[in-house]
Design a binder for these strands. Sequence first.
DNA 1: CATATTTAAGAGTATTTAATCTTAATTAAG
DNA 2: CTTAATTAAGATTAAATACTCTTAAATATG
Lengths: 145, 145
Amino acid sequence: MKALSQVGKYGLRALLYLVAYPPKNQYLSIREISDELGLSFHFVTKIFRELTEKGILISYRGPSGGIALAKPAEEIMLIDVIKALEGEDYFDKCLIGLPHCGTAKPCPVHEFWKEVKTKMQKNFSETSLALLGEKIRTMEVRLDD
Amino acid sequence: MKALSQVGKYGLRALLYLVAYPPKNQYLSIREISDELGLSFHFVTKIFRELTEKGILISYRGPSGGIALAKPAEEIMLIDVIKALEGEDYFDKCLIGLPHCGTAKPCPVHEFWKEVKTKMQKNFSETSLALLGEKIRTMEVRLDD
DNA sequence: CATATTTAAGAGTATTTAATCTTAATTAAG
DNA sequence: CTTAATTAAGATTAAATACTCTTAAATATG
């Protein structure tokens, strides 16, 4: 199941790198992130520009510039990132694509699909970037490969 | 969340129409299905050709020809259809796209994502086309709009 | 102030997915 | 046997997504 676009996948991985390996300086360069994760520098730059516009990152140009979280990692929830990367309507889609599917006009799998989406929304709303960063740092989990 | 491609969405809707409104004759024409659901005849034809190759449908050419389920609707599970339309590896994908993500090398959201996929697999494995057809026929749910 | 480093912006290209079109093959019915 | 109805097959086109490239703007440092 391809639940995220490449923008979503790469953006999330790149953000998690920033959270897991916070720089000594105020800013971490996009180049370091893209190099470390083996992602296209230009593509990550484009994605991060969007996250900056949406208030999840702040950026600074020039030498020793880069990007940084706009808020403490504890206050940024996974759901914020996913909605920023995939669209605010991410959890509003009918599985079989019926535009008016909803309580009033449910599709054949509406109730079940709503359960799945609710489970995801709940988990993503409770998961902070700080928590994920900590999991990565303690080597419980991985960000590349 | 876009969990299915257009092929998956249209294919499933078209199949469900067949199940919900079984023809008097042995075969139902693709033209009727695509007309009724407002889908492209040619696109549905192409999708159905795949489902025929994969043994979910049988087809018959010529006047009063069309397509029909290869097995009783009770014996075709939603999961079979989704795997046929989206690929056998549909439930094997890492949320953030890491190729080697798994128990040995989990990504930061591996465990949760596995739960979601397991829930879906379980439900889709227990849901027959017959059940969905019945829901549609009794007007509990809808297939267009 | 000159230079190097970094992100910003957007144009450009490539790939994948979606949809359409054309022609062939099959078959029923007059 | 001719015609019409239907799916099969694959070529073609369109659109969306995924990247890549170029140039500009900002800024630190010598």
